[in-house]
Design a protein around this nucleic acid. Structure first.
Length: 422
DNA sequence: TCTGGGGTCCTAGGACCC
DNA sequence: TCTGGGGTCCTAGGACCC
């Protein structure tokens, strides 16, 4: 029995989502910006052709935007999240085992599809997803996940493949490995790419020719796994049930620099509430959390400051009534007058399943009461949005709120949007 | 003036224990 | 004077992913 994986990757996903609802932008250059309209996180092919780089700060490309008439969007994660669900729904028609790897990528298990012409099958997926959702995709198929990733890349780049490639023939695999730069291999980042090139290892093919001990020494056992996968030996399984997260971080940069503690408290309390909500959503409790506060990391004139404080809880909790006041207390400890702050956030850690939590002996049992209240609050939030109920400390000044001046409407989830406005 | 927000895992080294 | 060896836990730092 041989394994077979397909990697389906949405092309320029965020840009494609925007285009589904503004088809007049087909063929036009589009970029989508990060939170706070900071830098470019998605580009249509036309924008790439204009020379816009991934991660480019908006202020650096203002001229290019004007010159080429590039359409600019703030990121709209509600829209992208909903489009992503639609794509996954279509994919699940093609395999009983789908791993949603990220918002725009899924692995499909095509092993045991014995009587199926895989070439035809992959092409069917490639055609069907855009027809059903409006989102164009690339499909790469191979014996290991890492090779499927590589096949997907080649499928996108090669004119001949035109967005779909089944990479199982050894001769084709070798050619693909030779055509793939080391830094484009899944699992090899910038640092490793630089290090490897010093040893004369420049392509994925070069990498497969190294000894295991060399790889393990310089790239740890994770790198060795990558190399084995490139050689065709499956080391990674499909993960259809994502494990509960071990850390959950909620943070945002402020729309503008803040100096007042009370403004920062509004932001942090909002993040703390959201973070506790995420924790409850995955049915977990946390043993500890960290609050951090920082100035801009880029400022030259103003002084930089970063500080964090970790708080251990007496017993694991997911209650806002526990986390929120303690988070604010931690913030007041690390806050210093006289800095221009740019970001704050909270990270919960030491996560365990909620049903395994033991009551602390010396604590009054407020757990049940809290849990009932949280259930009620979460119900309201899911139905009417996060603005429907909030604590006084979260405030209404919203001075910390992000900039998103080019936000598109939530086309697919509008009802929720309307309810939120009330 | 303006530079995102999430996550994962591994390794090395120190503290501490028997 | 001799002053081993093995284990666990924790943390910081460094790498990676989207």
């Amino acid at each position: 029995m041989t394994s077979l994986f397909a990697l389906v990757d949405c092309n320029n996903f965020y840009a494609s989502c925007e285009r589904v609802f503004q088809p007049q932008l087909n063929g036009k250059p589009i970029v989508v910006l990060s939170n706070n309209d900071g830098c470019v996180i998605a580009r249509s092919n036309e924008a790439k052709a204009c020379g816009i780089q991934m991660g480019a700060p908006l202020f650096e490309i203002k001229d290019a935007i004007a010159f080429h008439g590039i359409h600019v969007f703030s990121s709209n994660y509600e829209l992208y999240g909903d489009m992503s669900r639609r794509v996954v729904l279509v994919l699940s028609e093609y395999s009983p085992h789908v791993e949603v790897y990220s918002i725009d990528e899924s692995f499909l298990d095509l092993g045991n599809f014995l009587d199926v012409d895989i070439e035809k099958y992959a092409r069917a997926i490639w055609e069907r997803v855009p027809r059903a959702t409006g989102i164009p995709v690339a499909v790469g198929v191979a014996r290991t996940k890492t090779l499927a990733k590589l096949a997907n890349r080649v499928a996108k780049k090669s004119k001949k493949a035109n967005g779909m490639l089944v990479l199982t023939d050894p001769k084709h695999i070798e050619a693909a490995l030779k055509a793939t730069e080391i830094g484009d291999v899944w699992g090899i980042g910038r640092r490793y790419a630089r290090k490897l090139s010093q040893f004369g290892v420049n392509t994925a093919y070069d990498l497969t020719r190294q000894t295991d001990s060399f790889i393990k020494k310089h790239l740890t056992i994770l790198g060795l796994r990558t190399v084995k996968e490139l050689r065709g030996e499956p080391c990674l399984d499909l993960e259809t049930m994502p494990p509960a997260k071990q850390n959950i971080c909620t943070s945002r940069s402020f729309g503008e620099a803040l100096t007042e503690l009370s403004d920062i408290e509004e932001a942090l309390s909002t993040h703390a509430v959201r973070c506790a909500f995420k924790l409850r959503k995955q049915k977990s409790c946390a043993m500890a959390f960290t609050v951090f506060l920082e100035t801009s990391r880029f400022g030259q004139d103003s002084q930089m400051y970063f500080n964090s404080r970790t708080v251990r809880l007496d017993s694991p909790s997911s209650s806002e009534l526990v986390i929120l006041p303690a988070a604010l207390e931690a913030l007041r400890v690390i806050f210093r007058e006289g800095f221009r702050y740019k970001k704050t956030g909270v990270i919960v850690s030491g996560i365990c399943p909620a049903n395994q939590v033991q009551q602390s002996l010396f604590e009054p049992d407020t757990r049940q009461r809290d849990s009932n209240l949280m259930k009620t609050l979460d119900g309201l939030r899911e139905r009417y949005g996060f603005k429907s109920v909030f604590y006084g400390v979260q405030g209404t000044s919203g001075k910390w709120q992000m900039q998103n001046s080019n936000l598109s409407p939530c086309y697919t989830t509008k009802l929720k949007d309307l309810l939120k406005a009330n």
